[in-house]
């Protein structure tokens, strides 16, 4: 088994301690940071993400795999910068204003990051203006809004409106999710994409950004 295969397997099994040894080993062997990221860390994470999509893996497996992947990306971050690696795109993420439930949002963050997408986590109770400000200042490609309460769902529409008012609506794809959200609600508030779980969100985000790059 090559070191890269070992890295992928370690991520898949959530073995963060192994990653701490394997990534330096791969660097010593002459692998580039880009290779370690794509052929090792992300490959392992994608296996878990696919299994999650097929209901063969569950949140615990995803969380520990993401923890292992993050340990690896921490180690190669300086090298990635030196190599000029660019993430696939940039997203800002938060629970909408009035909503403090962040467990789902945090899982989305891990899954989206596992697609080599930079995520700016705005936390909970995020007002529309904060999303707008972040889109403008950070040049985000995606806005990811989460809500668990039916009372806070309308803030997703307010966020879309705020992006329109600021003149940046066309620059971003607005993705919405959370237990009470439906495709009909997504359409009604003028968001672009609804996904029903974190894995689907990460997959769609990746597709959208790849399409944007190749356009």
């Amino acid at each position: 088994m090559s070191t890269m295969d070992e890295i992928a397997a370690a991520v898949e099994k959530g073995k963060a301690k192994l990653i701490k040894d394997l990534v330096p080993k791969a660097i010593e062997e002459g692998c580039s940071a880009q290779e370690i990221l794509n052929d090792g860390l992300l490959r392992g994470m994608n296996v878990v993400g696919d299994r999650f999509t097929r209901n063969e893996a569950f949140v615990p497996e995803v969380l520990v795999a993401a923890r292992a992947m993050n340990k690896g990306t921490e180690l190669i971050k300086p090298l990635l910068l030196a190599e000029g690696n660019q993430p696939l795109g940039k997203a800002c993420l938060g629970t909408v204003q009035g909503d403090l439930h962040d467990i789902g949002k945090n899982i989305v963050k891990l899954m989206v990051e596992s697609k080599n997408i930079e995520v700016i986590d705005l936390g909970v109770d995020v007002p529309p203006e904060k999303f707008v400000e972040t889109v403008i200042n950070e040049k985000c490609d995606l806005v990811l809004c989460s809500a668990l309460l039916t009372t806070t769902m309308p803030m997703m529409g307010k966020t879309v409106d705020a992006l329109k008012e600021a003149g940046v609506r066309d620059q971003v794809t607005v993705m919405v999710g959370g237990a009470p959200i439906t495709q009909a609600f997504c359409d009604e508030v003028g968001a672009d994409v609804y996904t029903e779980d974190a894995a689907a969100c990460a997959n769609r985000a990746e597709e959208i950004l790849k399409a944007k790059r190749s356009a």
Binding site: V59, P60, E61, L63, V64, R67
Partner: peptide, 11 residues
């Protein structure tokens, strides 16, 4: 908290 507890369960 959910994340840390889950990691404890796995570890």
């Amino acid at each position: 908290s959910m994340f840390d507890f889950t990691c404890d369960l796995m570890d």
